[in-house]
């Protein structure tokens, strides 16, 4: 996996990453299934985005203390939860401010901008 250098740039380009961070922004640890169902994400989309956010230090995969391991095949699997880090909260806040600014500018120039840009920033 090739990591982006700039977490802010990644968040502004990646809708799923932005949505996941927005959902986790209250600081609660949540199971991947809950995140996926609430945001309506495909499992692979969730995995790719979370792996990237994990690599950027914005979301941790957390094994909650006292969690019950399960036997799978010849090994063991541990239940995990997703949790935003302090840095994740800071970067998200910044991304949200930038996104809000972009939205207001796109709205102002809606008629002259390419349709794809308008669709990206001003979803119906």
């Amino acid at each position: 996996m090739q990591l982006e250098k700039d977490p802010l740039g990644y968040l502004l380009r990646n809708k799923a990453g932005f949505a996941i961070l927005e959902f986790l922004n209250d600081g609660k640890a949540r199971p991947p299934r809950e995140v996926r169902h609430t945001l309506g994400l495909h499992p692979q989309t969730l995995k790719e985005a979370v792996d990237h956010l994990n690599g950027l230090g914005l979301v941790s995969l957390m094994v909650p203390p006292g969690s019950k391991p399960r036997r799978v095949g010849r090994g063991v699997a541990l239940p995990i939860e997703l949790r935003v880090t302090r840095s994740g909260q800071e970067v998200f806040q910044l991304a949200e401010e930038v996104a809000s600014d972009i939205r207001s500018r796109v709205r102002r120039h809606e008629k002259t901008l390419p349709a794809a840009t308008v669709d990206r920033w001003l979803p119906a």
Partner: peptide, 15 residues
């Protein structure tokens, strides 16, 4: 591996 789940920890994957 079963034991360490008692502890609770954070995972950061890398390639």
């Amino acid at each position: 591996q079963r034991d360490i789940s008692r502890c609770g920890f954070q995972i950061w994957r890398w390639s």
